Amino acid sequence: MANGCTFLEVLLAIVLPPLGVFLRFGCCSMEFCICLLLTILGYVPGIIYAIYVLVALDSDRHEREYYTLA
């Protein structure tokens, strides 16, 4: 189920980068503010940052959960 949600968030991040980040982290997070600023300054940097945050931080979260369970 988490992979399907990540896929949907990445698709939304391509169309409107802050929206994908907002769904994962909320509107008052540092990730959302950075993504919003980058999207205002340039659409492509906003997309790159949003995809990076959604994919990279998601893998870090799963690694931490694995080590917590072990």
Score class of each variant (00 low, 15 high):
Asn3Val: 02
Arg64Met: 10
Tyr66Ile: 15
Thr6Gln: 13
Ile40Met: 04
Val53Ser: 07
Gly4Lys: 15
Cys27Ala: 11
Gly26Glu: 14
Phe32Gly: 06
Leu54Pro: 00
Leu16Lys: 06
Cys33Asn: 06
Cys28Val: 12
Thr68Tyr: 12
Tyr66Phe: 13
Ser29Lys: 07
Cys5Glu: 11
Leu12Cys: 10
Arg24Glu: 00
Gly20Trp: 04
Arg64Gly: 05
Pro18Arg: 02
Val55Met: 08
Leu38Ser: 02
Leu16Gly: 02
Phe7Pro: 04
Gly42Lys: 04
Asn3Phe: 00
Ser29Ala: 09
Ile34Ser: 02
Leu57Arg: 12
Leu37Asp: 03
Gly42Asp: 08
Phe22Met: 11
Ile48Phe: 05
Ser59Thr: 13
Thr6Gly: 05
Asp60Ser: 10
Val10Cys: 15
Ala13Met: 03
Gly46Asp: 01
Leu16Glu: 04
Phe22Thr: 04
Cys28Gln: 08
Glu31Lys: 11
Pro17Arg: 08
Ile47Thr: 05
Val10Gly: 00
Val53Phe: 09
Thr68Cys: 07
Val10Ala: 13
Cys28His: 08
Thr6Ala: 13
Arg24His: 04
Pro18His: 01
Val44Tyr: 08
Ile47Met: 10
Cys35Ile: 06
Tyr49Arg: 04
Met30Asp: 10
Cys5Ala: 14
Phe7Trp: 08
Val53Thr: 09
Ala56Thr: 14
Leu8Ala: 07
Leu69Ala: 04
Pro17Phe: 13
Cys33His: 08
Gly20Glu: 04
Phe32Gln: 08
Ala70Ser: 12
Leu19Ser: 01
Cys5Met: 15
Cys27Ile: 15
Leu19Met: 06
Phe7Arg: 14
Pro17Ser: 13
Leu12Trp: 07
Val21Met: 09
Thr39Cys: 11
Tyr67Val: 06
Thr68Gly: 09
Val53Asn: 07
Leu69Asp: 06
Met30Tyr: 06
Glu65Gly: 02
Thr39Asp: 11
Thr68Asp: 09
Leu23Met: 05
Ile47Gly: 00
Gly4Ala: 15
Gly46Leu: 02
Cys27Thr: 08
Ser59Ile: 13
Tyr49Ile: 00
Tyr52Glu: 03
Glu65His: 07
Ile51Gly: 01
Gly20Arg: 07
Ala2His: 03
Gly20Thr: 05
Ile47Lys: 04
Tyr49Asp: 03
Ala13Ile: 00
Gly20Pro: 01
Gly4Cys: 05
Leu36Trp: 00
Pro45Ser: 05
Ile40Ala: 05
Leu16Phe: 15
Arg61Asp: 14
Ser59Leu: 09
Phe32Cys: 12
Val10Ser: 09
Ile14Leu: 15
Ala50Ser: 13
Cys5Lys: 11
